[in-house]
């Protein structure tokens, strides 16, 4: 099963490679990993998407907790949460296609943020599945490049992952 694990860790050089190294050393799957500082500059927030059965996920959370620089973590998949990912996708747009692509972008509530004679750059935010759907819907030959952030996620309600 797919799990989103949210991690608060010391904002120190090497902290990211400890997490990445742990996953490769122990053969765990890693689908995406995002990391950036928080309102407290000494802390980084990492969102990690992985998959595995219950035992594997239990080991992953235990092994992450064991890393000295990990302060706290939460498997968001255990409860209700919101997940968002941002994508920038560059599409060929010439002739009739310019209108058609724009319509599709509107349907998916994306924004065109760069226009050239023969291309658009589209910005789109949503759940991973929505972005997947857009990529699948657009004709393959129109795609120049796809840049995705990987999901970040937050729990619903008042409680939060904080010190």
């Amino acid at each position: 099963m797919r799990h989103i694990i949210s991690i608060l860790m010391e904002n120190e050089a090497g902290a990211l490679s400890r997490v990445a190294g742990l996953f490769s050393a122990r053969g765990y799957n890693i689908e995406s990993l995002t990391v950036s500082p928080t309102e407290d500059p000494t802390l980084s927030r990492m969102t990690l998407v992985t998959w595995g059965n219950e035992e594997i996920i239990e080991q992953i959370t235990k092994q992450l907790n064991k890393l000295i620089e990990v302060v706290k973590l939460n498997d968001l998949s255990d409860g209700k949460h919101i997940e968002r990912e941002m994508m920038m996708i560059k599409l060929k747009a010439v002739g009739d296609q310019r209108e058609e692509v724009k319509r599709l972008v509107d349907i998916f509530r994306g924004k065109i943020i760069d226009v050239s004679e023969s291309s658009y750059v589209v910005e789109m935010t949503g759940a991973t599945s929505k972005l997947d759907a857009f990529v699948e819907t657009v004709a393959k030959e129109l795609i120049v490049e796809v840049v995705r952030t990987g999901p970040s996620a937050i729990a619903r309600g008042v409680s939060g992952l904080r010190l």
Binding site: E55, E58, Q59, K62, Q63, N65, K66
Partner: peptide, 11 residues
Amino acid sequence: IDPSSISKNVR
């Protein structure tokens, strides 16, 4: 003492 040792290889 190490939580990750528990149920790692054997439940």
